[in-house]
């Protein structure tokens, strides 16, 4: 990733929600883990919260100071900034079930459906 941050915005007109999802993915260089994580994240978001999310990718190799703000130790780490409370999900997000639990999407899904 050559850019510092990479923002993916989806139009939220399709399913307007009271909550906007602000997600931040911390990576360290373009490793296979970070690429996998980003792909997995995108897939999950598209499937469960389409149009309501905003993903920011932070490369710590370029912006090492940002690691302190969100208390990042492991990479890749996905931080759910909004909705509160803050959640952190470590790893390449290959375990979809656990990502959903981590993002509180599993329960929400069951309730809404």
């Amino acid at each position: 990733m050559s850019k510092t941050t990479k923002t993916e915005k989806k139009n939220s007109s399709k399913a307007p929600s009271q909550e906007a999802w602000e997600l931040r993915l911390y990576v360290a260089g373009q490793t296979s883990k970070s690429v996998t994580a980003f792909a997995n994240l995108k897939k999950i978001c598209e499937e469960y919260i389409p149009g309501k999310y905003n993903i920011e990718v932070v490369d710590l190799l370029i912006n090492p100071t940002l690691a302190k703000g969100d208390q990042i130790l492991a990479v890749p780490t996905l931080v759910r900034k909004l909705p509160v409370p803050i959640r952190k999900i470590l790893g390449d997000l290959s375990d979809t079930e656990r990502v959903l639990v981590g993002l509180d999407l599993r329960q929400r899904d069951e309730q809404t459906v």
Binding site: Y26, I72, V75, I89, S94
Partner: peptide, 10 residues
């Protein structure tokens, strides 16, 4: 939450 492979590069 842990969801797969990671390291402590951070």
């Amino acid at each position: 939450e842990e969801t797969g492979e990671y390291d402590l590069e951070g």
